[in-house]
């Protein structure tokens, strides 16, 4: 492989990894934007999404076969199911804590994360589940640069989801209500916006995006495990912070940037791939020193 091939291939790798990070980061950023909560359970919703998708796919593959239609169906159903789970979590665990000190709700989020991951661990006996869809290794071959159709489908579906979300938040009344709540909840209540319903809707969307990423990861990587939400949760959170937490385009940008940094970090000459994370997170620290609010984050004015 020539240097140019390597650069192109790593670019593709980075974009694929980045679209996963971006999808999960969106949930973090939306929830933070609207109720200033770092939802630590978000990575676990990604994991639950993967498992739910697996269950649905196993159930419907008898009828539809393990085709793309079946995968899309299971993804949509898993998004609905996990979206609802997100709403339930918000209703049961977070809403009663909204007026409590910030730290209490943060700890509640940690607890929800533990309950989800340990719950799935008990159900699955801590076993790895093989998600074998056998999509084949075909793809687009540009000499030494290779992108499989599965990878292409992943990036396209992630982009479609992100585009739909962007449209929803900016062009619909519900989206505008979300933005308004992020600015001032009390004023929204006075304007007749049903704040609780909009918060629930935010959780629904954020959780279902995580579920979509979870199903895609299951299909693409071929294995599921109760701990799979941890690493990606951490990385997506980082992506959200780089992009400027609370900003939706920021989360997308942050995710892609982190993916690219990691891909190219592996390739730095003379040092092994064990320095990949040191490199990417080192750059992130530098970025946050120079711009503490993230790339697209706005400096908040503290209201007294």
């Amino acid at each position: 492989m020539s240097t140019q091939d390597i650069i192109l291939q790593q670019l593709a790798n980075g974009l694929i990894m980045g679209s996963f990070y971006a999808l999960v980061a969106l949930g973090y950023t939306m929830v933070y934007g609207i109720i200033k909560l770092l939802n630590f359970a978000h990575g676990d919703l990604y994991m639950v999404g993967g498992f739910v998708g697996f269950l649905i796919l196993s159930a419907i593959s008898g009828v539809l076969g393990e085709s793309w239609t079946a995968i899309v169906c299971s993804m949509v159903l898993s998004m609905l199911a996990v979206g609802l789970l997100g709403v339930i979590i918000q209703r049961v665990a977070y809403r009663p804590m909204l007026t409590a000190p910030r730290l209490s709700i943060l700890i509640t989020a940690l607890a929800v994360s533990m309950i989800l991951s340990n719950g799935v661990m008990s159900i699955t006996d801590g076993e790895y589940l093989a998600f074998n869809t056998d999509l084949g290794f075909d793809g687009l071959d540009f000499g030494n640069v290779f992108i499989s159709y599965t990878q292409l489908a992943l990036v396209i579906s992630a982009s479609v989801l992100m585009f739909v979300l962007y449209f929803f938040v900016n062009k619909t009344l519900y989206g505008k209500a979300m933005q308004a709540i992020a600015i001032d909840q009390d004023a929204c209540k006075l304007m007749g916006i049903n704040v609780n319903r909009i918060i629930a809707l935010t959780f629904f969307i954020g959780s279902s995006l995580a579920a979509a990423a979870g199903v895609m990861a299951g299909v693409y990587y071929g294995s599921l495990h109760f701990s799979m939400g941890f690493v990606i949760g951490l990385k997506a959170f980082t992506a959200a912070v780089i992009g400027g937490i609370g900003s939706i385009p920021g989360a997308m940008l942050g995710g892609l940037l982190l993916g690219l940094l990691e891909a190219f970090g592996t390739q730095i000459p003379f040092i092994g791939s064990e320095w990949k994370d040191v490199f990417s997170f080192g750059l992130l620290i530098l970025l946050l020193i120079l711009k503490p609010t993230g790339i697209l984050g706005k400096t908040e004015i503290e209201r007294m």
Partner: peptide
């Protein structure tokens, strides 16, 4: 190539590319 993969990291494509480039 003498490389490391982080535990629990699902995407190893960048490492795969590096390994392939060393043939």
């Amino acid at each position: 190539a003498y490389e490391v993969v982080n535990k629990g990291e699902q995407d190893q494509s960048s490492l795969v590319t590096k390994i392939k480039s060393k043939a």
